[in-house]
Every structure is written in structure tokens, then in C-alpha cells.
Design a protein around this nucleic acid. Structure first.
Lengths: 236, 236
DNA sequence: TTGTGATTTTTGTTGTAACATAATTGCAAT
DNA sequence: ATTGCAATTATGTTACAACAAAAATCACAA
């Protein structure tokens, strides 16, 4: 790069390694936080200038997110944050049930006492976050809870595919914030999962996690349906 | 592009649309045909010059394939065709069972008499190809057979994920050619699937397809194990 | 006010050069 | 012969400019 120092100077962020990855992680972070409202356009040059990098890494990151389904194309040269779509939500949920169910059951076989300890601590964090209405934190720890179980199976390909699915639905989570605390999302299923894990009942762990996914689906579905009316006029 | 006509002239291929896609499809095609032996390096400039394009579309296509798992990085700046790996093969097989099982069962619910006709014709083609030892054709029609069923479920995201899995194992198929005809790969399972489909027994269709995947896994596994000895010295 | 066509602006794609670093080669010492 | 290190080559990454096409804007007429 002929101006490698410029990016660091103008952006002043403490990143290292490939700029493509930096842009990718930045956008991914914003998306999973629901910072972008559905329909928002993300042109290459705008993203590049915002993050103080050239158009090449910005383009690569955006294309990667489009490929993953975290962003969608509304036209031949227009990339936007996807609208919540009932059919797509159903699809992703079915895939999540299949793959996360698999990961949970396989992972449960490798659980240790330490795993149970970790999960209990994470669940406490979730409850505390819900109490204090720190929804973003709750969401973050909730993800950590799931993947703590899934990671046990030792299948990195499976893990990355599941992460891609989370990224796909992630941009819809901001609709859940209000209801998130009141419904004590996931508390019951998580406790059941922990108990089953401690008892070595792998299939029960799977069922608990699947129920958790289904419960989340019902909430996302409601949010999606309530927005169908607003979707006719995508104002960008 | 400042020399858009150069690419078309030098390559003289009849492609249109994005050059990235052209490179991607070309490489994908070579990989699924087993044209590249595991360990082969694929540098950006080499691929670009071979196909008569700039380095940008070549880079994008290669990165995409790496992301999909069809190519792997053996070092920080070295992309190679992946070696057959037992653990990875197991992973992909588990994922295939989960997702293709899902697609088969959901798809079976939407099957029609026409579907059965199509599948029977495809199966005839497979048998004919096996008789005449046209393994590549058999492999191609075999894929068409599977996806004819999977497409019925009407879940494009699921379909594309399954396709990515096929691409991952695709580069290993060339090891199967000799045994392919003798074992009449997939014939029995396919016929069971067709019958179950005609009778509307969705779960039986799923089971038949899953058995087909397991049978293929056993063969790929044998090929992988027989090559472990040669893998210590990746000659490139 | 609304629809339609032309004009202007925006934007994705691609080739290229420069740079840093990984990969390779060559050489010398043991 | 083999190992370790230095020099050389090869290669991925990035910024940038030019181009084509899409998107937005605008003007004008119904």
C-alpha cells in the first residue's frame, strides 16, 4: 500500500493486520448491535471514508457480509441492511435448529464440571444484565452462553457456519430490546440445559437449546410481522 | 476499469457480467472436477494471468473460495487446494446429514408426480453413466438428483449452504473414480428415496438420503485414510 | 399534482503500481 | 550431508484512477 500510514493516522484506531478484516469486524459489530436500521444503504466509498481506509478493503468486507447474508442487495449496485423477512427468518431458524441442535448434543458429550461452572456464571450475568436493563450486554452474554456449549463439540466448520447464521438474524435483534427483559428471555431453557449438561443427558441439552431457539423465533417473528406494514415504503 | 476490453480480447472467453464471478465459477468448476491435486498452490497473479484478468477479480474469487472452505491457506500468503482431512470430512458429513436431511424431509412434502418422473430419469442417467464408466457425468447427475429433491423445500438459504458443503468435499471426489462404478454408488438409496417420495413418506425420504450421505462418507473416508501416508510430504 | 424522459450524479468494478512481508533460494559452517 | 542464516524472489494487500452502468435529480407536459 502506498499510504499505509494514512489509514492509521486519519482513523487513529488501534487496529493491526488486514484492513479488510478491520472493516469487516467493524460493520459486523454495528450490525449485531442493531445500530443500522433495515434499509440503510452502505456504499463502498462511504464506508471507506468513514473508517479511513481505501475502497478495496471496504469493498471486500461489504461483499463478504453480502455473501454471508448479513447485508443484501436491493439493486445491482445498492447494498442495504436487510429487512426482517418472515420466510428468511423461518429458514434461518430451521437451519439453526438443525446445526445448533447437532452442536449442542455433540458438545454435551464433552462437558466437564468446569463447563457447568462457566455456564452458571454466564447465566448469572445474563440475569443481572436483564435486571439492569442492559439489553446489549444480555444479548452478548447470551451468545457467549450458546457458543460455550457449541464449542465443546470441537467442530470449527460447524461453529463458523452457526456464527454466520447468528450474523444473519443479528440485525433484527434491535426490535427485541423492549420485550427482552420482561420476558426473561432464555432463562428457563438455559437452566434446563445446564442441568441436563451436568447429568450427561446430551439429548436433553439439545432439546433445551432447540426450545431456546424456538422461543427466540416466536419473538422475532412477532417483531417481523408488526413491521410488515412499514416495509412497503423503504425510506432508506 | 481502464482496460476492460483487454480482458475479453486476451481471454477470448464468452463471459459477461462480473469478472470476479467468471474467475470464481472457473475455479469452482476445476475444483469439483478434481482437476487440481491437493496441495496445489493458487497464487493470485498466476490465476489472473491464466484467465486473462486483473488481480482484483482473481483475488476476490480466491478469497471467496477460501472463505467457503473450498481452498485453504497453508501459510499467511499461500493458498492451496485442501488435503483430504478426516476430521474435516467428518464435520462436513455431520453438517450434510443435518441440513440435507432437513431439506429432503421438507422437500418431500412438496413432491409431485412430475418430481418422481424427473428423479427416475436422472437415476437412469446415473446408471447409464456408471455402465459406461463416465464417472464425471455420473457425479454430475448424482448432484442433480440430490438437489432436485432439496430444491422442493423452497428454502434458498438452505440450498446455498448445502451447495457450499458440496464444494468443500468436491475436491476429494477424484479419489473415488475407480471404485465409483463397481460399487454402484447410491443406486439403492436413490431408488428407496424415489419410492418413499412417491408414497409421501417424508421421513423415509430423509432416511434414504442420509444413508446415501453415509455411504459416500465411508468411501471418502477410506480414500482419506489411504492417503494419510502420502500427506507428510506435500510436494505442491 | 403526477408521470415521463433526459440529464446529472453516484457507485460498483477492474487494472495497476507500490509496499511490506512471507516464501524461497543460496551459501557457508559444522 | 545438514543446519542456520542472509539475500533474493514471490506474493498478498491496499490506494487510486478510469470506466460503465445504475440511481437520483430535474424539467416539462398532461
Amino acid at each position: 500500500m502506498d499510504e499505509s500510514t494514512t489509514a492509521g493516522a486519519s482513523g487513529s484506531e488501534g487496529h493491526q493486520g488486514r484492513l479488510s478484516d478491520y472493516v469487516y469486524e467493524s460493520l459486523k459489530d454495528q450490525l449485531t448491535r442493531g445500530a443500522y436500521s433495515p434499509g440503510k444503504k452502505l456504499p463502498i466509498r462511504t464506508v471507506a471514508e468513514t473508517l479511513g481506509v481505501g475502497s478495496t478493503p471496504a469493498r471486500e468486507a461489504i461483499n463478504r457480509l453480502v455473501f454471508e447474508g448479513a447485508l443484501v442487495m436491493s439493486g445491482p449496485k445498492t447494498v442495504i441492511v436487510p429487512y426482517l423477512d418472515l420466510a428468511g427468518l423461518y429458514e434461518v431458524t430451521q437451519m439453526r435448529l438443525a446445526l445448533e441442535g447437532l452442536a449442542a448434543e455433540k458438545g454435551a458429550a464433552n462437558a466437564t464440571g468446569e463447563t457447568v461452572e462457566t455456564l452458571l456464571k454466564l447465566q448469572e450475568k445474563i440475569s443481572l444484565s436483564l435486571d439492569e436493563k442492559r439489553y446489549r450486554d444480555a444479548l452478548h452474554v447470551n451468545k457467549e452462553f450458546h457458543f460455550t456449549i457449541y464449542r465443546l463439540c470441537g467442530m470449527p466448520h460447524l461453529l463458523s457456519t452457526i456464527e454466520a447464521l447468528w450474523l444473519r438474524v443479528g440485525s433484527s435483534f434491535h426490535d427485541l430490546y423492549p420485550e427482552f427483559a420482561e420476558q426473561r428471555y432464555g432463562v428457563h431453557n438455559h437452566m434446563v440445559a445446564i442441568e441436563a449438561l451436568a447429568e450427561g443427558e446430551a439429548s436433553f441439552v439439545r432439546a433445551a437449546m432447540e426450545n431456546d431457539i424456538r422461543d427466540g423465533y416466536r419473538r422475532l417473528k412477532k417483531a417481523a410481522m408488526s413491521r410488515v406494514g412499514h416495509r412497503a415504503a423503504p425510506s432508506g
